[in-house]
Design a binder for these strands. Structure first.
Length: 395
DNA sequence: AATGCGGGGAT
DNA sequence: ATCCCAGCATT
């Protein structure tokens, strides 16, 4: 029997396995899940709000990271209405360190949609759920199946890895168009009596057994059904193109302290990277300027030296941005790096002192004493700077 | 279809 | 270092 190209891209599982084998597959898999499922805080019940919060947090984020955030979030915002009314500052504080901050902003917009149009409750059709801000095809499927028992697939990285191995599917999972291949296959084997357990079983399997680099096929409940296990080709799947190197960006951070012991903090722009979070003022410099700073920093000691005139290049860089008489320390306090998915920040920390009355703040800057830093949502690079400054006695 | 958007765990 | 993770919005 010959297979056309379309059939190999979109396998007909019913023809391949037959009804009986599909049923056996479902039974064995659900039984495995019942026996070994992870005990997770959002699995206590199927409250749509809890399912929703957990799914948003789990986007591109591992379970172990999410757990403490989930508990705190449910404490701070127990209901959808609480979330809808929350202050943005508190919202960002709840998300601090979790990354992809637009997730929580979108979730609040969705909560407001729900209060306005659905009496503060999650609707129970995938069409309506999909309309909500921040809910894409994966999350819509996850909420539909887990909270409402609807037979909808939830196609994520786990599903694509598991199913690419089960059927040796070589669709490039980096391409958005490949999603429909997996959707087609998953629908054919999803048990309509318990799509919730089925979807969560795939998540558990992907996280604990069918792992990217080190799958433990000996303990896999699906090994008897796995085409790639049979052929020993597990590590060839999934097929994934892509991979762009993160590009370097260089900054000097201005740690400016006034005579009242306060520091300048600056709120980042309302859109883009780390939107609305707070950092010391950051000034981008060229790689050449940056390299010079660090040479000088490492050559000499890091004693506090107050200077004024005839400054080395480090001071020149700082002076370009100077808005009032500032006593800069001659050398950087230290260096912090942070890797994002698409770029790498290098930050050299400059320290200077001013008279409070001399220094005029921009509209997104504030004077803040160090003991109030914890009230502001800080991105990771800022946390690293604070840690370094504390450790060296500057805060 | 490509790109921007965080941060951490595992190897 | 590199890859991956319970992805989505925007262009």
């Amino acid at each position: 029997m010959k297979t056309s190209k379309v059939e190999s891209l979109f396998p007909d599982v019913t023809a391949l396995w037959g009804e009986d084998k599909i049923t056996a597959f479902q039974m064995e898999f659900l039984e495995w899940y019942e026996r070994t499922r992870r005990d997770l805080p959002w699995r206590e019940n199927s409250d749509p709000y809890r399912v929703w919060v957990s799914e948003i947090m789990l986007q591109q984020t591992q379970v172990v990271t999410v757990i403490p955030y989930f508990y705190r979030f449910m404490e701070w915002f127990p209901t959808i209405a609480d979330l809808a009314e929350a202050e943005e500052e508190k919202l960002l504080k709840a998300w601090e360190g979790l990354g992809y901050y637009s997730r929580v902003r979108n979730m609040q917009k969705a909560a407001q949609q729900l209060v306005a149009d659905y009496d503060g409750k999650m609707p129970n059709t995938i069409e309506e759920i999909s309309e909500l801000k921040g809910i894409g095809p994966y999350t819509a499927g996850a909420i539909s199946s887990i909270a409402f028992g609807l037979p909808e697939p939830a196609i994520d990285g786990n599903v694509m890895r598991v199913f690419s191995r089960l059927f040796e599917l070589d669709a490039d999972i980096a391409k958005p168009s490949s999603r429909k291949v997996f959707d087609h296959v998953v629908r054919q084997v999803m048990p309509h009596q318990d799509p919730s357990s089925f979807n969560q079983a795939i998540m558990d399997l992907g996280a604990t057994v069918c792992m990217p680099k080190t799958p433990t096929c000996e303990s896999c409940p699906l090994s008897a059904y796995c085409q790639s296990y049979e052929k020993g080709t597990m590590l060839n799947f999934p097929v994934k193109s892509k991979k762009v190197k993160s590009k370097p960006v260089y900054y000097v951070a201005h740690v400016i302290k006034n005579n009242s012991g306060e520091y300048v903090l600056e709120q980042r722009p309302e859109t883009g990277l780390l939107a609305n979070l707070w950092t010391f003022p950051l000034v981008e410099v060229t790689k050449e300027a940056y390299d010079k700073l660090n040479v000088e920093a490492t050559k000499e000691s890091r004693q506090l030296e107050l200077i004024a005139e005839d400054s080395p290049s480090y001071i020149s860089v700082l002076k370009e941005q100077e808005t009032c008489p500032t006593v800069w320390q001659t050398k950087p306090v230290g260096e912090v790096t942070h890797i994002f998915s698409h770029l790498k920040w290098h930050i050299s920390i400059g320290y200077g002192q001013v008279e409070r009355a001399d220094y005029s703040l921009t509209d997104r800057q504030k004077w803040v004493p160090a003991d109030q830093f914890s009230e502001y949502p800080f991105p990771k690079p800022q946390q690293k700077m604070v840690e370094l400054l504390s450790g060296t006695g500057y805060l």
